[in-house]
Design a protein around this nucleic acid. Structure first.
Lengths: 146, 146
DNA sequence: TGTGATTAACTGTTCGAACAGGTAATTGCT
DNA sequence: AGCAATTACCTGTTCGAACAGTTAATCACA
């Protein structure tokens, strides 16, 4: 029994989830994290890098390079914004649609794995617990960041 | 409400926890992940790199470089194993003890933040939930890895 | 005892994550 | 209109994470 049970449990769960997601994405040709960008683009359509950063709670520098790699890999295309010369609009390429279904299936599988044999009520409890933890951590993060 | 509620919740909780841990470690001079190595060495004493890799569920290549950086930073010292010429024994330096208390306090703080105002019963429930998720994910990870 | 498999550590490479800065475009306010 | 602050994006750098492949030492067993 570790000294910080919750903290350690979160670390372990997150690492396992990460590992599984990575395995699943491997066949698709996406690196861990890139799937979040693609799903965002598939679902909400073309948008600015800054919009992606904000929605995914990411970093400007990380997004610049991630977009460049996705572009080199043919998953994404970028064009200058017509209204703001500083901004770049990113969109999923038609070719990327070929892997969309598989990415979405991977995430559905991941959820299914996590759920396991939990009953509907237990799933709901689990979600409550995670939301509670998130709220607690978020409050602390906000107070030290701000 | 996201399509994969548990998956997304885990991702968010883990990211917040990570951010907070990083903030806390910053003042100590340790990078995220290095604190796990140090705590292992502080608690269980000198040990082989391979032992660290196994206990922390890490990677041989990652550990090689992490140890080298910790050594350059003065937190760790390495010496050849007397019984196995392939192996290196790593130990925490006396100097590293200066930050031990602060690292341990940080982890205690992190736990306290996660716990928030949860009652003892709720904490126990939360732990059960996380253990359940871990077991589910672990089973899947093992079956695909093996 | 010698030989083939395993093990411990290392290098090379690519990636996301984070921080520090830097430039050009835009906005806000006087 | 003009200037300061903000914003969007970028580069440089350091880190852990993961994968592939190398070398040297050790082990297992025929």
């Amino acid at each position: 029994m570790p000294a910080q049970p919750l903290t350690n449990a979160i670390v372990r769960v997150a690492r396992l989830q990460r590992m599984l997601a990575q395995q699943m994405l491997r066949g698709v040709g996406l690196h861990l994290g890139q799937e979040l960008v693609m799903m965002q683009l598939w679902e909400r359509g073309p948008q600015t890098q800054t919009e992606l950063v904000r929605t995914l709670d990411s970093d400007s520098a990380t997004m610049t390079r991630m977009v460049r790699r996705l572009e080199n890999a043919g998953f994404v295309r970028s064009r200058p914004s017509p209204t703001d010369k500083r901004a770049t609009i990113i969109e999923a390429t038609p070719a990327s649609q070929a892997v969309r279904r598989e990415v979405e299936r991977s995430w559905a599988d991941l959820e299914k794995i996590a759920v396991g044999d939990l009953t509907a009520a237990q799933q709901s409890d689990a979600l409550d617990v995670l939301r509670r933890l998130e709220a607690n951590l978020d409050a602390a993060a906000r107070s030290t960041t701000a």
